[in-house]
Design a protein around this nucleic acid. Sequence first.
DNA 1: TATGATACGGACGATATCGTCCGGTTGATC
DNA 2: GATCAACCGGACGATATCGTCCGTATCATA
Lengths: 198, 198
Amino acid sequence: MPHPAARQPRKDALRNRERVLDAATELIRRDGEKVPIARIAEHAGVGVGTVYRHFATREDLLGALVYRSFGLAVDNARAAAAYPGSALEGVRAFFLATLRDRERFVLPLHGGPVILTPATRERQGRVRTVLRGLIERGQGAGELRADLSPEDLIVAASLLSRPLPGTGDWERLARRQIDLMISGLAPAAPSTTTPQRP
Amino acid sequence: MPHPAARQPRKDALRNRERVLDAATELIRRDGEKVPIARIAEHAGVGVGTVYRHFATREDLLGALVYRSFGLAVDNARAAAAYPGSALEGVRAFFLATLRDRERFVLPLHGGPVILTPATRERQGRVRTVLRGLIERGQGAGELRADLSPEDLIVAASLLSRPLPGTGDWERLARRQIDLMISGLAPAAPSTTTPQRP
DNA sequence: TATGATACGGACGATATCGTCCGGTTGATC
DNA sequence: GATCAACCGGACGATATCGTCCGTATCATA
């Protein structure tokens, strides 16, 4: 027989789950992925039992964080693809959005085990697809170099989401990197930008 | 009384110190900076006591690794500055050298405490100075954009030294990023920049 | 409001890691 | 080769973290 009643989930449970994810995001980004569960629980204002109930293992928690991050990436990619104006500006918007949201990203930051559930992989593919559309539009308009791939943008954006410690003002430094990168995305310079050269 | 004899350091001590640094580099890059000292000792083939004798605290060990990394960076910057050919190719050489040596770099990778001893800071400044020379040469020759700073190159290179986990072939992806970056380092494309004659 | 299912918090025993200490060994010097 | 300062390894008690368990509190439903 099918599900008899399927009770509504309790809202305190949902609230606590979100709190745990938020706390974990902050602490993992600050102290690394091995931060004690007890510390995450404390920072979230819940007991350790609550954390372990929602996420049976550390991997489950990490996996949920990564999944959530890719949701953000999908949103940003879609917004960039729908950006009014040139595709090149759309690409810049994608970079800037990643930079803006950087504190909410928890990607496999270090050498630790990479958690990629099927659902996460699906989102990952969606980011690629959306960016591919944007790139092809730009290439058609002659705004983007022909050999540009979604992977290039994803790698560059991911790098921006991990502030380099010891550098004072990541916001400023990252914007510089974006500018340099954007300058490099135009079609190959020698052929198109030197028409009047002797 | 001044130094009476200043004995020669024992070579087993020096050898073990190097072994510990090498082991720590590998494990910290793989498992994060909180990797147990005992694991480092085991991987280095020495006892924990030996590690603690050379590096009284975890911070001391981390600091030594960072110091060592900046030594590498100085070497690479000097080689790049002395690169025969255009300054732009010198910059590319610097990036490629960083990529090549990436597994030997231990920079303050995560949010953890940033260890910057005065000696390390001195090396850091030396990298900046050497790169500034290279950049100015390139700007004088019209090969590099006028607003380029050593910091830009250092940030970009540092990013390359931290492989993005979950991506299969960092070597390939990083080379792509280098190409894109190099394309963005030329003077502003709109050709309003006067092609000066040297 | 009554009720039962669901979630909560945190104590607890087990395990992992820390940093020190010391008996034994090695190597620089004479 | 003899000497002894310097170094080596790992055992050890202290502390930190883990993941489970259960009595109590809260919420969805009737």
